[in-house]
């Protein structure tokens, strides 16, 4: 298993295709929490279950002011068909050309198979990795780790907010 970027690392910025005629840039999401989900392939059974689960949790993620991005080496048209077939309501990004370049930067590329690892990253509002996890490739990691990480971030943000309030009162 690859050694993925760990908590405390600044998440490498990127611009990737999200639809045939649109790009998405990570740093444009600064100020919000971001969940990055690298997964091996559209249409594969485990990935299908995994994205279907996240798709049901978008309201929970939004409660934590978090955006979720799925990334694989599949191309935009493949992503479009997959998203339509599964009714997905979050963006799938194509790490397609040069293939897997971004996944390599995150330590989440499996060169032997030419696909992304099944790796999760939760980024804080400043774009710092707050939590990361690489799952065995055949195991759907679920969402409990993501939600725990987001809760920690929300707690931290609240504590910080209270501190600022206290300073203002002084």
């Amino acid at each position: 298993m690859a050694s993925i970027l760990s908590a405390g690392t600044v998440a490498p910025d990127f611009t990737l295709r999200v639809t045939p005629d649109q790009n998405l840039t990570l740093s444009d999401l600064r100020g919000r929490n971001v969940i990055i989900v690298f997964y091996p392939a559209d249409w594969s059974p485990v990935c299908g279950d995994q994205v279907a689960l996240y798709n049901e949790l978008l309201t929970e993620f939004h409660k934590h002011d978090a955006e979720i991005l799925g990334i694989s080496v599949d191309g935009v048209w493949c992503h479009a068909a997959f998203a339509r077939h599964r009714n997905l309501h979050f963006p799938l990004l194509a790490d397609f050309e040069p293939k897997g370049e971004l996944a390599r930067k995150y330590g989440a590329y499996r060169a032997t198979e030419g696909v992304c690892e099944r790796a999760l990253f939760v980024l804080d509002r400043e774009g710092m990795i707050a939590w990361s996890y690489c799952s065995p490739i055949a195991v759907n990691p679920g969402a409990d780790g993501i939600l725990d990480a987001l809760e920690q971030l929300s707690k931290k943000a609240n504590a910080h907010g209270h501190l600022e309030d206290a300073h203002q009162q002084e």
Binding site: N140, A143, D144, L147
Partner: peptide, 12 residues
């Protein structure tokens, strides 16, 4: 029920 499952690691 669903959220309790998610927090217990239910993934499918």
């Amino acid at each position: 029920d669903f959220m309790g499952g998610v927090r217990s690691g239910v993934n499918g």
